[in-house]
Write a protein that binds this DNA or RNA. Structure first.
Lengths: 141, 141
DNA sequence: CTACGTCATTACCAAAGCTAAAGAAAATTG
DNA sequence: CAATTTTCTTTAGCTTTGGTAATGACGTAG
């Protein structure tokens, strides 16, 4: 791995952590934490999942996921049904209302990030656009 | 702003938050939180700074920064001196030991991220390398 | 020189995740 | 097929980390 690669990786790390902290302040639904939003996003992508699966996908411990799901259910954003074959497990799925919140959140944060990105020139923005899918893949690897 | 731009921004947001959460688990110095690391990084870049400046740069409230600095001072990673002109203020600077920890942390997280990046092909990695400085600029804007 | 603003700090509080352990159900083994 | 072990979720209690409100010291403007 070259020196340039190391620099890139370091910048990537620093940027991700800093952006995450700043994005945290831009939530549309004040009562929903970033991880709760992440769960809704995962459910929107995957349809259904068990608490254990969600915990693994969100890199959180199972007890934390249990509480997050309880919160979300209480707010009507998520449904819990018994697993058809395994009575230990539970199947979680998101509701229509969750989809609306996701859309609104996306809109709002896009606006914030877009405004921030006005400090970039066209070439820089182009590089970001080219790398965005790669970043996404990396983060979900 | 085009549809592609919106997608890019959305991917950026999701990726940053997810990567940040995963990086959080890769700390070399277990006793140092991500924000504490961020402060050391900022001090390494800027030399000296007052608590207020650091709070603004790290997007944290002043009382939180006071506590972070107290922690870091207790561990010998940071020095506090009176401000030469303004006796209300304090000037914080990092120690040699902090520099060592930063290097070790950089090495360790680079290794983790590099390993993760092995799931990317050469073209993807190239795009990331091109975008890394832009991301860094964006995050610090 | 008095009143107001600013900086750091202190004291208290809330959010969010973790570990340990319990309880139920499935899988495995003798 | 009974007993043990494993797996999945949940409960309970703790820790970390950041926030808000209030305080005290210092600078600054009227």
């Amino acid at each position: 791995m070259s020196e340039d690669d190391l620099v890139a990786v370091s910048q990537l790390r620093s940027s991700a952590m800093r952006l995450a902290r700043r994005l945290r302040h831009q939530r549309v639904e004040e009562s929903l934490s970033p991880t709760e939003m992440g769960v809704l996003g995962t459910l929107a992508r995957c349809g259904k999942a068990t608490p254990g699966e969600l915990a693994r996908k969100e890199h959180v411990q199972p007890p934390s996921m249990t509480r997050i799901i309880a919160m979300l259910e209480e707010k009507g954003l998520v449904r819990r049904e018994p697993h058809p074959e395994d009575r230990r497990q539970v199947v979680v799925s998101s509701t229509e209302q969750a989809e609306q919140i996701l859309n609104e959140s996306r809109r709002r944060r896009n606006a914030w990030l877009a405004e921030l990105a006005e400090g970039l020139d066209e070439d820089e923005w182009e590089r970001l656009r080219a790398a965005a899918p790669v970043l996404y893949k990396l983060a979900h690897l």
